[in-house]
Structures are given as C-alpha cells and as structure tokens.
C-alpha cells in the first residue's frame, strides 16, 4: 500500500536520512522510534504524501507521489488516517463534526449518520460530541483525532506520538484501539518514544519496531 524505495530526504543544512526501504503491507504493525530530531515526523510525512523525498521513490497505493497532483494526494489521504501529536482540529466545530470531517470533505454525507455515534462510543467520546475541541482534555483530543483518522475506514493508520501528551492509562486505551484496528486488517505505523507502549503492544500484536538512527532506518526489535 505504501512503499519506500531508496528514499532520502535532505534539508537545507544536510541529509536527514538516506537509503530507506520499507513496505507497509495490509495488516502490518510498525513502530518508529529514534532520538529527537532524527526525522520521525518527516519520515511519516513522506509516508502520507505531505512531503516529497529528495531521492528515491515513495508510492502510495501503487502510484509514485512525484507523479501525483495535489488532488491525487488528497484522494490517497482518504485511505490513510493520520493522527498528529498536536491533534489539529477545526476549533469552531463540535467534536462530532470534526470527527466526521473526512466524510464531509469527501462528499460521503450518507455515511456520517450510521458511523458517527458508534465511533464516538468506541473511543469513549459520546458525551463530548457537542463540545468544541478546545474544551477537551489531551487524552480526549487524541481519541477524537483517532476517531477522525479511522472514520473513512482507511487502509493505513499513521500516528505521530499519539500518546505524547497523555497518561499511561489513556495510552493503553489508545493502543487498544490501534490494535483493534490492526486486527481488522489495517496497516498501522506509530512513531513514539514510549518504549513501554511498544512493549505493551508487542504483547498483543506482532509489531515490527524500526529505529531512525544515524540517517538510517534500522530494525530495533531485539533491543526491546
């Protein structure tokens, strides 16, 4: 679904990483770790077409990102649910409309009604549906972001430090949601510093752990 071949990314001041090869297949679960500044967020942005690699090929669902128009990338995004660490929302809309936004933006209005209440219940936000995002706690925002990321039933879920601002209990709850989605056949990639979260996940699902270090993507499962 998402394939990176010999990918490099160079900022103005130097090469962030190079020679990266990775395939996110259906049902796969990847963790991405590495020191701060190693390029985890940049790597994830390459995976969902937000950035274009300076070398190599990134393919989204069989199509080279370099050959895609902005609208093509937008169409691909509908198959990739993204959860950011800072969880950006439209603050003037209630949580329910924010969660339904991917369906609204893709003109799938008929799917909102049957999916929204179930999904809000699944992430434990039924009681917060009418609230505005600024009224939510950190954990509630993370769960709302996850609900928004999965409402279109995407093939891939990419989460960037989804547990960065929440307590351990809430992290476990989010992890459970991600594991459930993975068991439904979704490919999941999570960037995190939280080794305890990775250990907890490995107890539930066959997850591959990757580490961005010294400008290379390395397998890091043995370290955990």
């Amino acid at each position: 679904m998402i394939e990176l071949r010999d990918v490099a990314y160079t900022y103005g001041r130097g090469e962030l990483f190079a020679g990266i090869n990775l395939t996110l297949a259906p049902g796969s679960f990847h963790f991405l770790t590495g020191p701060s500044g190693a390029g985890k967020t940049t790597f994830l942005k390459l995976c969902y077409g937000e950035l274009i690699s300076t070398h190599g090929t990134v393919s989204l669902f069989g199509k080279d990102v370099r050959d895609m128009t902005r609208d093509d990338v937008a169409l691909s995004r509908r198959r990739i649910g993204v959860v950011h660490q800072d969880c950006q929302f439209l603050d003037h809309l209630p949580v329910s409309e924010n969660v339904a936004l991917p369906l609204t933006a893709s003109g799938r209005h008929a799917e909102i009604e049957p999916n929204l209440s179930d999904l809000l219940g699944w992430v434990g936000l039924s009681g917060q549906a009418a609230q505005r995002p600024p009224q939510l706690s950190g954990g509630e925002r993370q769960r709302a972001a996850l609900a928004r990321a999965v409402i279109t039933s995407p093939d891939v879920i990419i989460a960037d430090e989804p547990t960065g601002n929440i307590d351990w209990e809430m992290s476990q709850r989010l992890l459970t949601l991600l594991v459930e989605l993975n068991r439904m056949g979704k490919a999941v990639m999570v960037a995190t510093h939280d080794l305890n979260l990775i250990r907890a996940a490995k107890a539930q699902v066959q997850a591959r752990v990757l580490r961005l270090k010294d400008r290379q993507l390395q397998a890091a499962g043995a370290d955990l």
Partner: peptide, 16 residues
C-alpha cells in the same frame, strides 16, 4: 491556514 491544513490532512481536494 490551520483550517486548510486540517482539511488537507483529512483528504479534502482543492476544489472543496
């Protein structure tokens, strides 16, 4: 700009 970023994130096309 943030509204546009969010809309792009969720797959909204330019025309939308």
């Amino acid at each position: 700009a943030q509204v546009i970023r969010v809309l792009r994130l969720v797959g909204a096309q330019d025309a939308y």
